[in-house]
């Protein structure tokens, strides 16, 4: 701050706090709802302060069959499915992007630019716009209701390949030259030099991709019909539908809370990485 005006300082903080309240309000209300019992959640006005039923709701949601009267998998199972999907998508994307970026930057081979453009084009094809035919492909390959079907079609990613390409291009040429004089073969160079040097970028990308994977909605909705394969994010919609008959908002909001905890935790715990990854991947 250039000038030192106390009033300005106070106004600044007040506005920021107001902003935080607005941003955090929906989450606060979710949390509050998850701490009351079912009966309290049926009386208007709904509470604005937490009640004492958090752990009861927690165990009931996590290990019970979830919502009474709906046929869904237990929540712990859904969390597990979400975790598997998010991990497979983020790790898979990182591995194949690292490999293809390595090939494109460090090798001269026929059709190199052709491959590059083929990958680039996927930047323009989000899953939402080719949803039906992609679904057909996955169905034909017999990958419905499987972790493979959930993750592999979302794995190819031009953004990650671009980012690694960018990272590799900023690594001085002399690293490779020096390594070659030291006697490193291509894959040795990849593992000994390139991977350690891109460590922070890999971590940053992991945060972004984990959130991307965890939060997938439309794709799992189409691919999974088996309740055992339901992801936690999907289940919220099913619960909302069920809520029209028997609203158990305490359980629904507890589920919502559980669904947002892993990605929120990752963002906050790895904030530095995440900000770096976000502002560098997209730019």
């Amino acid at each position: 701050m250039v000038e030192n005006r106390p009033i300005l300082k106070i106004v600044t903080h007040l506005i920021l706090i107001f902003g935080i309240v607005i941003v955090a309000l929906p989450i606060w209300i979710t949390f509050v709802a998850s701490t009351h019992d079912e009966a309290r959640m049926l009386q208007a006005p709904l509470p604005l302060l937490p009640g004492g039923h958090f752990f009861e709701n927690f165990t009931k949601t996590l290990f019970g069959s979830g919502l009474a009267g709906s046929e869904v998998a237990p929540v712990w199972r859904m969390l597990l499915n979400s975790m598997a999907m998010a991990m497979m998508i983020s790790i898979g994307k990182i591995i194949i992007s690292l490999l293809s970026a390595f090939a494109i930057v460090y090798f001269k081979f026929p059709f190199r630019m052709g491959f590059f453009w083929l990958i680039f084009i996927t930047l323009m094809l989000p899953v939402e716009v080719r949803i039906l035919p992609t679904f057909e492909v996955v169905a034909n390959l017999g990958m419905l209701n499987s972790y493979w079907g959930l993750s592999i079609p979302l794995i190819a990613s031009a953004t990650a390949t671009f980012m690694f390409r960018q990272v590799f291009l900023t690594i001085p040429d002399e690293m490779l030259e020096s390594a070659r004089i030291d006697g490193a073969k291509p894959m040795r160079f990849f593992f000994d030099i390139l991977l350690p040097l891109s460590r922070t970028n890999i971590a940053a990308l992991f945060v972004i991709l984990f959130i991307y994977g965890w939060n997938q909605y439309l794709w799992p909705l189409l691919i999974t019909t088996d309740t055992d394969m339901t992801t936690i994010v999907m289940s919220i919609k099913q619960m909302l539908e069920a809520a029209e008959q028997s609203p158990q908002w305490n359980i629904i909001m507890m589920t919502a809370l559980l669904a947002m905890i892993p990605p929120v935790f990752v963002v906050i715990a790895m904030q530095k990485m995440f900000v770096k990854g976000l502002t560098e991947t997209d730019k």
Binding site: A24, T30, N215, A256, P263, Q271
Partner: peptide, 20 residues
């Protein structure tokens, strides 16, 4: 305190607002 909504899935965001 301001960045966490980024981590919340769109469908969850919808659920929170529909509840409110």
């Amino acid at each position: 305190l301001l960045i966490w909504p980024y981590a919340i899935a769109p469908v969850l965001a919808g659920a929170l607002w529909v509840f409110m």
